[in-house]
Structure formats: structure tokens, C-alpha cells
Design a protein around this nucleic acid. Structure first.
Lengths: 232, 232
DNA sequence: CGCTCGTCAAGAGCAGTGCTCTCGTTTGTT
DNA sequence: AACAAACGAGAGCACTGCTCTTGACGAGCG
């Protein structure tokens, strides 16, 4: 109930959100390490020290931005995937791929904050985890659904996974129940391949070489789908 | 000829190298954005302003570190690959994979500087390019060698690449001559997959999930080799 | 109504940063 | 020996994150 909030609490929540918004704007312009509390305060017309009433430290503000970022990409992925018929597993995978890439291209600095080099001296607290795995949850459900529908036919040989992978596979299987080890490995490869491609594209490794990027990204991710075992 | 260098020039070259070395040490501890010229100067017992006699700005020092880093990983890759018989293409690929990963694990902050988020406000000058592609050159030669040896048999269907990829493929083909378009795409996927995996491992995406990382990395990269068409 | 107490913005201040400028000193060359 | 280039040191500027203190405001209680 908004009526249960006092006027004080409402204005506080409002200001907290506004600070985060302004900071996100700064982030988009100057990058993560260029995030300046004083600049945020200046832009809002308040004293820099007043910011600390709302965020105890720069790292806490950063944490808020990280959580918001994970939620944003997670929501984009969820929405894109939900728009595809559930039996079209390859289509759902492609929707996820394009959702991540589109969001990354639209918010490069935020993507860098989430999936690029960790900010030195900053240690992500545990409360970022729920937001961080939203996209992974969606992806895992696609793989799991495809497997249970019998739609997963990975090409080529699949040699036995190293025995030491058992424990790790068990942890992954919490998100994709009953999926066999070799499919888990393939899904990890596709997932890291997706983010590896986007990171190369965003972080400059494709500069001066791969210029027409959207079509080949689509082509490459369809290839990943086939390697994962999803029917074309 | 070292005799052609005056004492001044020699001590200058020596000091320049020492500054870079100290800065690399700082980098390894505090990360890229924690690189402080004053701290470097302090550690060397000289005034901070004196550093500017050797590096005109912090960015120039960063450029030197980036070039050194690319050279280091490039050399590691070259050495590892050279130790494998040239007809063992899959072995050469695996040597490259492990060389990159081992170097990355040993120098995480430097890896982040090279393949992670770009430092905000920093624009890599063109002179980093020759060092930056050393590993790519090695990798391209493996693919190219395997193709010309007729050892490349990519599994599964390979639908036609998008026509817009022609120009980009031509650029890539400068490093792997005569290789057909679909193999170029597969090689791009394997290459981005390698760095995507390592980045996930280094940047914390595997935390609390994938713990026993060396064996599954090896397994995954062998999988990539098969997907690329290299015989097991 | 009046008073107290928690919340808040503001300002000064600390230690740190990249970078510039000046001022003597050292060094290599003519 | 004389001169000019190169050099190290220091002071200083504008900036950063963060802390501490001060004073004002407003909600709730007697």
C-alpha cells in the first residue's frame, strides 16, 4: 500500500530512484570507473555528502546499478523468449541470443559492468545473484524443455565428460533437470559462445575485421543451436 | 649497437622499462583503473612529476602495458603451438587454448585489460594492433594448415553464409588463405568460444557453479575442435 | 500546543588522483 | 670551457571518495 508509506518514505524512495537513474546516465557516458558521486550530486543540484544518506558508499550505488542491469537484460530475455511458441526451441534460443545482443548494443557500458572485467576493488555482494541468473534460468529452461521433448539431437560423437565434472553438472542440473552430462557441456559451450561473441563485438576485437555484424551473428548463433542439438 | 647509445639514453631506456615493470606490478594488484602514477613513482622513490618525462600521460603508460600484454600472451601461444607437430592440427589448437587460459589465469588483470571491458575514456592507438593479433595469426595458420592438408571435416550441415559476410570473410582470409566461408564462420565461433569461456571463468560467471575448471575446459575445447572439423 | 528526537542537506576537511609549471641541476655536445 | 637539451624535485590546480560536524526541518508524543 502506498498509503502505508509516510511522506518522508515516499520522497526518500523517489530520490533513491532518481540518484540511480542519474548515475546510470553517467555510467552510459563515462563508464563504470568514471562514475562520480560528486558529479551525480552536481547534476541533481544537491551536496555530494547528501548522496551518502541514500547510498552508504560508491560501491553500494554500483551494486544497485549492477542489479538493475541484470534485471534489465533478464527482463529483455524473458520477454523475447516468451513471445516464441514453446515447442520452437531453436526459435526460443535465437530470441534469447538477439535479446542479449540488442540489449548489450543499446547499453554497452552496462553490459561491460555485468559481463566485462570486474571493477577492481569491488566485490559483488550475494544479493546480485538472483538478478544475475534470470537470463540463465530462461536459457536453461529452453535446453531442459527441448531435452524432455526429445527434440535434442546433438550431432557428432560425445565422448564421456571428465569424472570430476559430476559435481558441477549436478549444480547445473538444478536449472535443467534430468539433462545428461554431455548436453550440459554443450549448453555451457553455446552459452559462453554467445557472450564471447558479443564481448568480442563490444570490446573491440572485431574492429576493422568484422564489420557487418548482425547477419553473421544470427548465422553463428543458428550454428550454435545445431551444435547444441536443436533442430534447424 | 649498444655503444651507439649514450649513457643517458641507456639509463633512460632502463628507467622506462622499470617504470613499466612497476606499473605492471601495480596492475596485477589493483587492476587497470587502480593504476596510479603517483604510486608507481612512490615505489620507485622518485617524484610523480618525473614519470612524465618517460610517459606523457597515464594513457601512454597504459598503452605500453597493453602492448606488452598482447606480446606476452602472443609469445606464450606461439611457443606452445610450436612445440606440437605441425600435422597434429587438433593438438596445436589445444596447445593454443591451454596457453591462452594458463596465461590468463596467471595474469588475470592483464587479461582483463586486453580482452575485458575497454578502459573508459581510453582509446587504443593503432600501434597495439601488431601485438594484438599475434595469437590470432597462430590460430589462423592452424585452421589454414588443416584445411590445406584436407584434414578439415566439419560435421553437420553448413548452410550458406549470409551474402553480406563476403567482405568480412575476405578480410579474415588474409590470415587463412583459400579457406571457404563456412569454415571461417566455424573458426570465428571456436575463437570467440575460447575467449568467452575464459572470460566467464575469470570474470566470475562460473563462481559457485563450475568449480573444477581445468578438466572441463579441456573437454569443451576438444569439443570445439570437433565442431570446427579437426579430427579428434 | 509545545517539545523532543530522528532525518536530512550542507559545508569543511582529509587523503588521494592526473597533470602542469617552474626551478635548479646534471649531462652530452660543440 | 660554454651552451643547450634533458632531467628530478617541488608546488600547485582541479578533481575524486569519503567523514564529520552543524544547523534546519518535520513527524509523533505528552
Amino acid at each position: 500500500m502506498s498509503s502505508s508509506l509516510t511522506a518522508r518514505e515516499r520522497v526518500r524512495a523517489e530520490l533513491t530512484r532518481e540518484i540511480a537513474d542519474v548515475a546510470r546516465g553517467q555510467l552510459a557516458v563515462h563508464g563504470a570507473s568514471g562514475l562520480s558521486l560528486r558529479a551525480v550530486a552536481r547534476e541533481m543540484g544537491m551536496a555530494s555528502s547528501a548522496i551518502y544518506r541514500y547510498f552508504p558508499s560508491r560501491d553500494d550505488l554500483l551494486t544497485a546499478l549492477i542489479i538493475d542491469g541484470y534485471d534489465a537484460v533478464g527482463e529483455a530475455v524473458e520477454n523475447a523468449e516468451a513471445a516464441v511458441p514453446r515447442e520452437d526451441h531453436a526459435g526460443r534460443w535465437m530470441a534469447v541470443c538477439h535479446a542479449v545482443r540488442d540489449w548489450a548494443l543499446a547499453h554497452p557500458h552496462e553490459y561491460a559492468l555485468l559481463y566485462g572485467s570486474p571493477v577492481p576493488g569491488y566485490r559483488a555482494p550475494q544479493d546480485t545473484v538472483p538478478a544475475a541468473v534470470r537470463d540463465t534460468v530462461v536459457y536453461s529452461r529452453i535446453v531442459s524443455d527441448a531435452h524432455h521433448a526429445g527434440a535434442l539431437n546433438p550431432p557428432g560423437p560425445h565422448p564421456p565428460v571428465p569424472p570430476s565434472f559430476r559435481d558441477d553438472a549436478t549444480r547445473v542440473r538444478e536449472l535443467m533437470p534430468d539433462v545428461p552430462d554431455d548436453v550440459i557441456v554443450r549448453s555451457l559451450i553455446a552459452w559462453t559462445g554467445l557472450f564471447g561473441w558479443i564481448s568480442f563485438e563490444l570490446f573491440g576485437q572485431f574492429d576493422n575485421v568484422i564489420l557487418d555484424r548482425a547477419p553473421i551473428f544470427d548465422h553463428a548463433m543458428r550454428h550454435q543451436a545445431r551444435a547444441l542439438g536443436l533442430p534447424a
